[in-house]
């Protein structure tokens, strides 16, 4: 149970960063921290005590496997997370080239 709570605290740290930081790069970092806590939560849900990795060994068929379904979901989510992060960083580069700053308040003031 402690692991679930620590995982939730990690999510809250990322959320705190997204809400309070004013720097675009730090917001992107906080977003990826939130993502990571979600991946960890899914992996925790599927864990079974004494289970082995879900790879079938024909020589030893009676075994306890950990749940392969959350792992398959996280496998998809990790790759999508890379795509969104790359997109985010591309937009940040564009904003930096136009406004010469990462600070969202200054970008808001320079709008025109």
């Amino acid at each position: 149970m402690i692991a679930y709570i620590m995982c939730f605290i990690l999510f809250l740290v990322g959320l705190y960063g997204v809400i309070t930081r004013r720097n675009l790069v730090k917001i992107a970092v906080s977003l990826s921290i939130m993502e990571i806590s979600t991946f960890l939560f899914f992996a925790l849900i599927g864990y079974v005590d004494g289970g082995v990795a879900p790879i079938v060994d024909p020589a030893d068929p009676v075994k306890v496997y950990v749940d392969p379904l959350p792992q398959a979901l996280v496998l998809t989510a990790i790759v999508i997370g890379l795509a969104t992060t790359a997109m985010l960083m591309a937009i940040i580069i564009r904003l930096y080239r136009k406004y010469k700053t990462f600070d969202i308040r200054e970008i808001k003031n320079l709008r025109g």
């Binding site: 991946f39 864990y47 082995v52 950990v66």
Partner: peptide, 9 residues
């Protein structure tokens, strides 16, 4: 957590 595929990715 016994998830080697996830670790590699």
């Amino acid at each position: 957590l016994k998830a080697p595929d996830l670790a590699i990715v």
